[in-house]
């Protein structure tokens, strides 16, 4: 497809560039600046070079936080993407139930992050929380404050509850765009339900699923508020994800240099992984286009 081209269009994009420069690039450069210096307060800075980076990359604490973060994102993607698609497949396509379902699905997305954390914090408490109390009453020893497994399960369930609707809504939009003729043709061809899913629905949903995976990956990889409110990173450091660790480092210990270096590395990891996801998921397509004569 051809797009109109006019050099003056750049002027229209200029405000965005300025905004990005002020809101992203300048602060980022400040962080870069911090990451290569050392300070002991009083606004005195000393050149540190790559020291902080070397220290960070070698640090056990960073490795563990990174590991926890990767594990968390992996679990989230493995649960939310298939579950979201499944929900989208079950959602009604006609009638008055459509709008009702859409509203219900959108509800969790409208709740602020810190409120979500608070809701689950109360919900999971053994003394007054509906979930915690019920579990304990039926004989399950559940305590997210002390038990590492329970803490993880609670955070994962909380995130699934909060964000699966996003995946479902995106997948639903993809499903809705498939013309009826495809389903009819598949019926005529005698295709099974599974074949219809694999050969028609999945390929046609692919583009929105790529977006869903990227969104959910980036979001889950940067998760901060909910676990901070719920567990504060504990018990121990068992739910201290990268972002929580970063805040502890920067604000708790006021180690601006190492924290800045960690921010940069954090940022690069997200960028790298997103790029890998995107390339892998669209590889098939590029091959197809490249091969077409």
């Amino acid at each position: 497809m051809n797009k109109p081209f006019d050099n003056r269009a750049w002027f229209l994009v200029l405000p965005v560039f300025l905004l990005v420069a002020f809101s992203a690039i300048l602060p980022l450069m400040t962080v870069v600046n911090y990451s290569v210096q050392d300070t002991f307060g009083n606004n005195q800075f000393f050149w540190a070079g790559t020291d902080w980076y070397v220290q960070l990359l070698a640090s056990e604490r960073f490795h563990q936080a990174l590991g926890r973060q990767l594990l968390f994102s992996a679990i989230i993607l493995l649960i939310q993407i298939p579950l979201g698609v499944l929900i989208a497949l079950c959602m009604p396509r006609k009638g008055w139930t459509v709008s009702l379902t859409l509203v219900l699905m959108a509800l969790p997305l409208l709740i602020p992050w810190n409120v979500v954390g608070t809701i689950w914090q109360v919900f999971g408490r053994g003394d007054i929380g509906l979930l915690g109390y019920t579990l304990n009453r039926i004989g399950l020893d559940y305590n997210y404050v002390n038990n590492i497994g329970d803490a993880w399960v609670t955070i994962v369930v909380m995130d699934v509850w909060h964000w699966t609707s996003l995946v479902a809504l995106l997948a639903y939009a993809g499903l809705r765009s498939i013309p009826d003729a495809y389903y009819q043709a598949a019926k005529i061809d005698g295709a099974s339900r599974w074949s219809i899913f694999r050969l028609i629905q999945l390929p046609k949903m692919k583009h929105v699923l790529i977006i869903a995976v990227l969104l959910r990956f980036m979001d889950s990889f940067m998760i901060y508020t909910e676990p901070f409110v719920l567990t504060g990173g504990g018990p121990g450091n068992s739910t201290t994800f990268l972002s929580i660790d970063l805040v502890k480092l920067a604000l708790g210990q006021f180690d601006l240099g190492p924290a800045a270096a960690m921010s940069i590395v954090y940022f690069l990891v997200i960028l790298l992984l997103s790029w890998v996801f995107y390339t892998v998921m669209t590889r098939d397509e590029n091959e197809r286009q490249g091969g077409a004569s």
Partner: peptide, 16 residues
């Protein structure tokens, strides 16, 4: 439809 043994060609090509 699936039990009627018919085939159909649509206005826009439907292929896998």
């Amino acid at each position: 439809t699936e039990h009627r043994n018919i085939a159909q060609v649509f206005q826009f090509p439907v292929i896998y």
